[in-house]
Amino acid sequence: MAAIEFLDVSYTVPGGAQILDHVSLVIGEGEVVALVGRSGAGKTTLLRLVNRLLEPDAGRVVVGGRDAREWEPIRLRRSIGYVIQDAGLFPHFTVADNIAVVPRLEGWDDARIRSRVDELLQLTGLPPAVYADRWPGELSGGERQRVGVARALAADPAILLMDEPFGALDPVTRAELQSEFRGVQRRLRKTVILVTHDMREALSLADRVAVMESGEIIACDAPPAMLASGDARVRKLLEAVTVPFSQDS
């Protein structure tokens, strides 16, 4: 069954430019789909239609078999994990409190929250004894991003939306987190939409890569097929990464 379906979706900024132009994309359960393209291609906009941060002006978005418009937005958002570039942690909450945001909103009891927070800190490679009571301001960029992922996973959502999650990290840390992401995903099997402008990241993490340009999906395929694509626009994106990528694959 499809977890997320974009059916002929268009989006125009009120009184401004058209960002999405009749986009269709079906994402299966447990699938990782990367949206790749340059800035302004419409990747983030497409992502935000899923949890109704934005509403399409034409077409339908279906989440978990139901039209997104039928979902109560608050309910919908709490059942979808969301990770953004600078993590967006609450600076006035400790690491543990940041991770516990959605469980608290959902009214979990304290004991359950505590054990869930510990479990997620372990999962994301942050020993709870060291990190639970620290403040976001005291963490490195990589640590903050791990907390961001842990927070998104807190209420065990079936869907994870990730907007440039590793974009602000140095190359070493990025590679480390990417590899851990693969490990976590192998265990959890979430449905993931990953927005990135880095083709290399897309090819290494995703089951399928959708290339966007000017509000349209111009190609969508599994990484090996994508590498073999003859489309000039896709080749242009690939050129930047092909050589190093083929070396370590």
């Binding site: 941060l53 958002r77 953004i84 909103l105």
Partner: peptide, 12 residues
């Protein structure tokens, strides 16, 4: 991003 994170996590 902080505000956006709050909205996206389903805060009223």
């Amino acid at each position: 991003p902080v505000r956006e994170a709050g909205v996206a996590m389903g805060m009223t």
